[in-house]
């Protein structure tokens, strides 16, 4: 059996129970785009933003990490995040995707596709950020 590295959050492991904003419980691998959209609609603080993957490159600090550059929201703000290559992002209409889906599947048993430039990921911002 495999153990996820400590820096990868436990809720991405297949079978993890996720509570939606309306109280419904779902397994992480069963989540759909609509679950995130509907939960954000209920939320008073959070809203969903579209974050388009603009660039994916290896990290300078470790081969286990990748730097993903996103274009966030309608203003296309540039945001870069450094994540473990197996870290899953949720792509609109597609589901969980990571820089190294084989590793995600191996470590987390989470069904996952390859994250690619042009993919539109679900991200969050504050509703009243002005």
């Amino acid at each position: 059996s495999t153990v996820a590295p400590p820096s990868l959050p436990p809720y991405f492991i297949k079978g993890s129970i996720i509570q939606l904003a309306d109280g419904e419980l779902k397994r992480v691998e069963d989540l759909k785009t609509e679950d995130f959209i509907q939960s954000a609609e209920i939320s008073s603080e959070l809203k969903i933003d579209s974050s388009t993957v603009e660039r994916i490159e290896g990290s300078h600090t470790s081969p286990n990490f990748a730097v993903v550059q996103f274009s966030v929201g309608e203003h296309r703000a540039q945001v870069s995040v450094e994540v473990l290559v197996e870290y899953p992002f949720f792509v609109f209409g597609q589901g969980w995707s990571s820089c190294c889906p084989d590793r995600t599947t191996q470590l987390l048993e989470l069904p996952c596709t390859k994250l690619s430039v042009g993919d539109v990921c679900i991200s969050l911002t504050l509703k009243n950020l002005r």
Binding site: P9, P10, Y11, F12, S16, I17, I18, Q19, L20, A21, L25, V28, L31, D35, F36, S39, S43, L46, I48, D49, S51, F70, V72, G73, H75, A77, V79, V81, F89, F90, C121, I122, S123, L124, T125, L126, L129, R130
Partner: peptide
């Protein structure tokens, strides 16, 4: 069994406010 809130699975990407 731990239950995790939905928003913990989504990266919080706050665009920098330039204005």
């Amino acid at each position: 069994v731990p239950v995790f809130p939905w928003h913990s699975l989504v990266p919080f990407l706050a665009p920098t406010q330039s204005d």
